[in-house]
């Protein structure tokens, strides 16, 4: 069946099956492989994207449910030429080890900072509680989110 949605600001129309997940649509149909599939059961957060301003596990959303939705994936934040402050901060703070969880971590962080640019450490931990890093690098990830908040605040609007 046909659906249309906006992904990273670009309007897309696709044919999906009822059982196609939003994650499958993003990775397989659109080729946006920054979004990862870890557990496929909503526990690891590697597939986190922002859908209509909410963080969702894209493995637990049907593509058909995203009809008309606005989706933001890691590719929509920034690229090699111009990194988003979150991406820059994750690199600077050494928050990335194997990297598999990072797109999801960054999308959850993005949502967190969109709502609260002055998060406490507890706010950050709660905001990232749906994202698991199995390299166990949470300390640096929390540092990176703090640093990104600082960058965004000092860099003004154009950085966001």
């Amino acid at each position: 069946m046909k659906i249309s949605l906006t992904v990273n600001g670009e309007k897309r129309a696709l044919d999906v099956k009822p059982e196609t997940r939003l994650l499958d649509l993003i990775r397989d149909d659109l080729g946006l492989t920054g979004t990862k599939e870890g557990c496929g059961k909503g526990e690891c957060g590697a597939c986190t994207v922002i859908m209509n301003n909410k963080v969702v596990a894209s493995c637990l959303v049907l593509a058909a449910q995203a009809d008309g939705a606005e989706i933001k994936t890691i590719e929509g934040l920034g690229g090699k030429d111009k990194l988003h402050p979150l991406q820059q901060a994750f690199i600077e703070k050494g928050a990335v080890q194997c990297g598999f969880c990072i797109p999801g971590m960054i999308m959850s962080s993005k949502k967190l900072l969109d709502e609260n640019i002055n998060p406490s450490e507890e706010d950050i931990k709660r905001g990232l509680s749906g994202n698991i890093c199995r390299c166990t690098g949470y300390v640096k990830i929390v540092d990176a989110v703090k640093e990104a908040a600082h960058k965004i605040k000092s860099g003004g609007e154009e950085n966001v």
Partner: peptide, 11 residues
């Protein structure tokens, strides 16, 4: 651009 997600007899 398509129409909507309504055009399936399974969903």
């Amino acid at each position: 651009l398509g129409t909507s997600g309504k055009d399936s007899d399974k969903y």
